[in-house]
Amino acid sequence: MDRASLIRCRDLGIGYGRRTLLRGLELEIASGDFLGIVGPNGGGKTTLLRTLLGLLAPQAGTVVARRADGGTLRFGYVVQREHLDRTFPLSALDVVLMGRYGRLGLLRFPHAADRRAARDAMDRVGVGDLAGRPFRDLSGGQQQRTLIARALAGEPDILVLDEPTNGMDLAGEGAVMDLLAEINRGGMTVLMVSHALSTVMNRADRLAYVRHDRGLFRLGPAADLLRPEVLGELYDTPVRVTRIGNHVVALRECDAAAPGPNDPARADGE
């Protein structure tokens, strides 16, 4: 089935101020995609994301973000939660309700239907029972789910997440990624930025590698890009790609070869 294109970039140049990070990018995101943007820290991932969101103007080329019916694309943006101020005395429901504000527009007040939509979104991501709790008192995983609920409450066309698993433990990270995969299976387009390749590569259909200091931008199906030579170029170190069940695992070649701290051979050597 031919899926509708939501975002189309042509000959795109991205950067801040007078500083251009990357140019000549060609990118298309279709309805139902799960695209992961990965790369090293400071590689230009967030700059690309902010350009796609319209928060930064393109330095060259064009970004067209349109719904299939020609209407303006509605983003459900999940910002890095470290950027949120913990001094604000807001309940989880207050935070989720903000997801409706852009949809409401100026000079219109949230009504019962908006509160209902916010609560539905919280139920959908499994934090419905936390509505009255102060947002700042929630765990990292609960906060992340609440922010995803906020993005979903606005009934977006595309869910955009910036490093959603930062600072989370293994279980929390896995739960958030499972949730995103489930949301994507429900038909929602997902665009996610992460510096942690292992977090994204087993969930996303397509990957985009970004590394501006090498002028590197690679886009393609995850299976095509999860190859040692591509990852080695991206991370500037030899990488071994292996499989555990259905999951792909990438390790630095030196780490894969070296004995681990609990390796019996290493213990004998000591």
Binding site: L55, V79, H83, D85, F88, G99, Y101, R103, L107, G154
Partner: peptide, 23 residues
């Protein structure tokens, strides 16, 4: 009274507010 929700949104999370179309 008229702009309370916008003031809250831009004060708490200006980046998301902007991405949501709030001026």
């Amino acid at each position: 009274l008229l702009f309370f929700k916008e003031f809250l949104f831009v004060s708490y999370d200006p980046e998301t507010a902007r991405a949501s179309g709030v001026p």
